[in-house]
Nucleic acid binder design. Structure first.
Lengths: 346, 346
DNA sequence: CCTTCCCATGTAACCGATTACATCCCCGAA
DNA sequence: TTCGGGGATGTAATCGGTTACATGGGAAGG
């Protein structure tokens, strides 16, 4: 592995000169520059990024800590982050830690000195974060329980979105609106559930366990929950899943059970993953611009990394919008010739 | 930012001792160890991973270079890689480079000295890889054009899988089998197309441009291609999409056009992304265990990283299997109301 | 009581870069 | 001719760790 010293020796200059050439310093003769470049190319030299960042004290890396990697949600999020990071010359360190506090701390550990800042999407409530370890450098929290003004954070309007969807279903005449919940200790899931409860109460309907089924954000659990809800007495007339993957699973379960959607059962999801619009029937959902969430998080983080001192921490909530397609029988529902509402992302 | 020196000073020992404590060396008294641990905890010290890897000459990182980040395929792949890497105490550096040779080289550049090895999934044929830069450390190529024995590589049975699916469609009586192609310069796409051509010829059917539509592996392009193929004369009776995302898009297009699947049009995809089985009708596809592909790639890479000298390069092809669900009207047709139009001819 | 050996600890070189500061050379001004 | 100044280059400290080697003190054996 060829180092800067090898190049220096071969070119008959000092390491400082080689370094200068590589950093486009003006303090080098065109002649020398050319010679060094040639030697470097001949030897196949490329600078050791790790060593470089040790001495410059900046890594040009950002760490991304995710709770999970299942499904299109995360690929969209990562896509948004990566795209923005790359534009600014930063690279990504990715780790998914399944929630155990120790695992998070370990991941953090391995990132210390490798990244300039962190985007953390912790599933668990704020209390579970190893806060101590996080204060040492810029952090943007994603969809995490609010931890006060201590951190920059970005969240989506979970409760609002859920409430809007429930309101919409109520407006369509539904009274028995079931919910497929997300993972127990997940903040997004909790917020969506809260919005669902609030909207029901606002409509004069009492929420209750007989209207809820447990899921874990993965399609298979939506399938199981869909089946389960069909057996409930009285049978719900609408199912609101805490995310699209589960809604899609439920859709599939209903189809197998011979229950027509939306005629016999309305279905709605949350997230608007790209695939939602291609379902049968096209899935009504709450749109979250996932890639944009990632981009925004990255922008905020890079701003914090760059400006350091004069960066002011903010808690921001990204708005969500209802996307009514056919699966809840509301708007665009005339099954044959009419095109579904299609909102083409990017 | 507290360093090893701070801890050493505060604990009244040398840096070497602190280092030993942190590396669980046996050469430290229980007493000293305890004291150092306590001081470290009090100061909130955690070692600088970058500095550490500079002196140990191992980073415990692996780089992942992907062509794109759209869709569930990549989230599954990353999931497999991350899971395996984490188990072995490695972390991930992720970069997606959209194919331009320069971008790939740049990404590689920024990884030099940050990773011990690389998993590269290049969309482009081998010639486009900056081979020179890659030979300096262990690399596993994913689904790339074979570049001889110079690299470890892992591929999936693209051509075989495509051929099998086409055979299956032929066996169901189809003669006009259209294909939605993947991106022009993508290796997987090319191989799948090759398998399709081969199987058609083997069945005595001449392939031709009138049976093919261009796509780019993203669902929206499948939608457009589906519409386009419906206008072809004669109209195909089956559509084979080069991946599931496009098949799902096509499914949606057919539904909008009022074409019944599989009665009037058989549809099949490739990849078996988790969501495929929840489509309506459930999508027949060629199963690739994507997460397993990632895991296998990681295992191979880590073996190369670990054993160094005595590691032997291999080119491996992962088998694929046909998953016949309902969208092509063949076997697994559980929905009673639907009877396949075409009976098995063989 | 004196070696000898071993083990806990310290000192300093090193990993591969960057960069402050020193040095040297060449050119123009006095 | 001499001197000052500035630009090109070199020397060495530094980033935050690891680790080979040196050192010193206590226990065991004679």
């Amino acid at each position: 592995m060829v180092t800067i010293k090898d190049v220096a020796r071969a070119a008959g200059v000092s390491v400082a000169t080689v370094s200068r050439v590589h950093n486009d310093s003006t303090l080098v003769t065109a002649d020398t520059r050319g010679r060094v470049r040639a030697v470097a190319a001949r030897l196949g030299y490329s600078p050791h990024a790790g060593a470089r960042s040790l001495s410059t004290r900046k890594t040009n890396g950002i760490g991304v800590l995710l709770p999970d990697l299942h499904g299109e949600f995360y690929s969209e999020l990562i896509r948004g982050i990566d795209q923005r990071a790359q534009r600014h010359g930063f690279h990504l360190l990715l780790a998914s830690s399944h929630d155990e506090k120790a695992a998070i701390a370990a991941a953090l550990q391995s990132m210390r000195g490798r990244v300039d800042g962190l985007i953390v999407m912790s599933p668990a409530p704020g209390a579970h974060l190893p806060v101590r370890d996080l204060t040492s450098f810029p952090v943007v929290l994603l969809n995490s329980a609010a931890v006060g003004a201590a951190f920059d954070s970005l969240a989506i309007g979970n409760a609002e979105g859920a409430a809007q969807m429930v309101q919409h279903l109520v407006a369509l005449g539904h009274r028995h609106i079931a919910m497929i919940r997300g993972p127990a200790r997940n903040h997004d899931a909790a917020e969506r559930l809260r919005g669902y409860h609030a909207a029901l109460r606002a409509a004069g309907i009492a929420p209750g366990p007989e209207l809820e089924a447990q899921g874990d954000f993965i399609d298979a659990s939506g399938f199981a929950a869909g089946l389960e809800l069909l057996r409930r007495q009285p049978r719900p007339t609408a199912i609101f899943a805490a995310n699209d993957a589960m809604a899609i699973g439920a859709l599939s379960a209903l189809r197998e059970a011979g229950v027509r959607v939306p005629q016999e059962m309305a279905v709605a999801g949350f997230d608007d993953i790209p695939m939602a619009r291609y379902m049968h029937p096209p899935l009504s959902t709450v749109r979250v611009d996932i890639a944009a969430l990632g981009e925004r998080a990255t922008d905020r983080l890079l701003e914090a990394v760059t400006s350091r001192r004069r960066h002011k921490k903010r808690q921001e909530v990204l708005p969500v919008t209802l996307v009514i397609r056919e699966s809840c029988g509301g708007g665009g529902d005339r099954s044959s010739a009419i095109s579904p509402v299609r909102r083409d992302a990017s």
